[in-house]
Design a binder for these strands. Structure first.
Lengths: 358, 358
DNA sequence: GTCCGGACCGTGAACGTTCACGATGGCGTA
DNA sequence: TACGCCATCGTGAACGTTCACGGTCCGGAC
């Protein structure tokens, strides 16, 4: 079951077999197919050890992710790094960062593609802008894996994310359980035009419906990832609904909403569910102001993304078009276990400007 | 940074370096230390590809786990298998099963040790009985990793488990959130003498205490993993406390408790939290009779165990004495995502004897 | 002095693959 | 006919490590 066996079986040399298996020039198309057919029938599996021993060519994959929110993206990077170590030194991971989601990802992508990467892991901020670049990458045989956010209808290899519908449904079910008496709850998101955000709302509403509509959505707020707007609209929602029982902030921008609730003295009567985990949120969870946060498990996402990409580069095996991680409810009781696993320097935010801590 | 560089730097042959690095006989102790020191200072990392290419010696690790509960242990095995594939064919995993936890694990251990395994992954049913065997294994340089249950005070390499204190605390916090009005709850376990079970109770009580003692433990029941006893004592507890608001079954034996609650018509007034996931539990979760189950993530445990063991066998790097996975709350809304990932044939229980399904 | 044995160490082949180079042969052109 | 070119294929070295084998040296016994 080696390259030699194929050569012997066909009466050709190992060099010819090598050329055939790697689609190199300088070989008769007929012998090429004969070799391929024989390789197939013999069940040929390349010996990776020997391959890497000889031409110490390393696979280079580049990871383009934002810097902010640090704790989240650092965790994602950590998951990738961790999953990559078993393959070292045959695999080399190159990290490139840009300030925020969608700010500079295209440029970083072009640079890496020009420098000759073998694969990508990216979080598309603006999928439409990235689409043509994913196309050219695919044409050159460079696979792209999306994490956290997807770039649908492109030639990406696969996407890894927390299934948004389930994320919303988990938050909804938890709120339903926490508020057995029923009542009104608020839903905060970024843009409902974004597929992911709309899916979360769908999942959320579906969960509420399960309970016989004792809990209902009093307002759906689009904050457009803007701190000021989030704060202002949270104040408005709370004042318009003095009897509001719960809030689910389905984006990572939960701080403005939390502060608004605190300013109005409503924290004790509200059950609040947020999204993901970042330093400034830890305190709110510890003192119970946030009942739970739906964690999208960046570490696991990173691991899955890297493994799918590596498998494809080595075996050529295609993953399913979408890979999902199960969202986790982080509460006070299991918070510490998450903080343990997180990148070390990321937990202490120190006095960041504009951050109110109580 | 290869064996040749060490040889050249010291003016010896590669054979000598090889003998020194592997503690083989037939080498002067002095040259041995000289080689080791030089290897250290040059930062020598063996080329695993070359090593495996030459003496195609495969690491063989044996996994001894119970058959029942199938879904749980199959998931654990799946996690191990999955984590092992990247190392194939340099790593070979051998699975041995015995009927139940503690029934035949010692015999299986001895057999595998005699057959010359390189490492173990086991779930000690009776840690005391297994201790001497772990000792002899350790003396022969065969590392043992415990999963799910630990064998403390032995020479095991490490143990992988869901931190029992956190498991209990998560269940407690969830119940607290579900029952904002306070009241009495029941706690079911196996044996309080078992460290893990006692830790879960501690975590559980700690979470209740956080809330200003509005929720309190009406009864702690030891069911000794006996179905009849569990059922009988559940009936007794429910009848003694007609106002019981919630139940946490901290072992996998939750069915007798659930049936007792159902028989007494108390399901609708009880918030029930169980442990782990198995086929017969799925229906109870789907119709909301079980609010949530604390999942101890066997797949992740398997992955962690294998990676720690492999790292040690290859690098000699020792993992921390305990590795923890974060327990997850499985509810109706994320149940399907878990069932997806589970071993295929394990979900459908068919008509198992003695199983009541509604 | 010769021989032997043991301790220690060097030598070289082999593992499966890759790749640069050389070899072969057929065909067209001078 | 002689030559060169191109397409196609074979050859052999190299990658870093392991291991069986053989070599060298030294001390002791005859």
């Amino acid at each position: 079951m080696g390259i030699k066996d194929i050569a012997r079986a066909l009466g050709v040399s190992t060099g010819t077999v090598d050329r055939a298996l790697h689609a190199k020039p300088g070989i008769n198309p007929m012998t090429r197919t004969r070799v391929l057919r024989m390789a197939e029938s013999l069940g040929y599996r390349p010996n990776l050890a020997a391959r890497h021993l000889k031409s110490r060519k390393v696979l280079r994959i580049t990871v383009n992710l934002p810097r902010e929110i640090a704790l989240f993206w650092d965790s994602l990077r950590e998951g990738i790094r961790e999953a990559a170590t078993p393959f070292a030194p045959a695999l080399e991971v190159e990290f490139a960062s840009y300030p925020r989601l969608g700010e500079g990802d295209v440029a970083a992508f072009e640079r890496a593609l020009a420098s000759g990467t073998n694969g990508f892991i990216v979080a598309p901020g603006d999928p439409v802008a990235l689409r043509p670049h994913i196309r050219t990458a695919a044409q050159r045989g460079v696979p792209v894996v999306c994490v956290v956010t997807d770039a649908p209808d492109t030639q990406r290899l696969t996407s890894v994310s927390a299934d948004p519908y389930t994320v919303g449904a988990v938050a909804g079910e938890f709120l339903t359980r926490c508020l057995p008496g029923g009542g009104e709850v608020g839903f905060f998101t970024g843009w409902l035009a974004t597929q992911d955000h709309a899916d979360k709302l769908r999942g959320f509403e579906q969960s509420l419906a399960h309970d016989g509509h004792k809990l209902r959505v009093a307002g759906v707020v689009e904050a457009h990832d803007d701190e000021r707007e989030g704060h202002r609209r949270a104040l408005a929602l709370l004042e318009a609904h003095p009897d509001l029982k719960g809030i689910y902030v389905s984006t990572v921008n939960s701080l403005p909403v939390l502060r608004a609730a605190e300013e109005l003295g409503r924290l004790s009567t509200l059950t609040i569910v947020t999204t993901d985990l970042f330093p400034d949120l830890v305190g709110w969870i510890r003192r119970g102001a946030v009942a739970a946060t739906v964690y999208q498990r960046p570490i696991s996402q990173g691991r899955l993304a890297l493994q799918a990409l590596y498998q494809f580069l080595v075996d050529g095996t295609c993953p399913p078009p979408k890979l999902h991680v199960v969202p986790i409810l982080v509460m006070r009781s299991n918070l510490e276990l998450f903080l343990e696993r997180l990148p070390a320097d990321a937990e202490a935010p120190a006095g960041e400007p504009g951050v109110v801590r109580t």
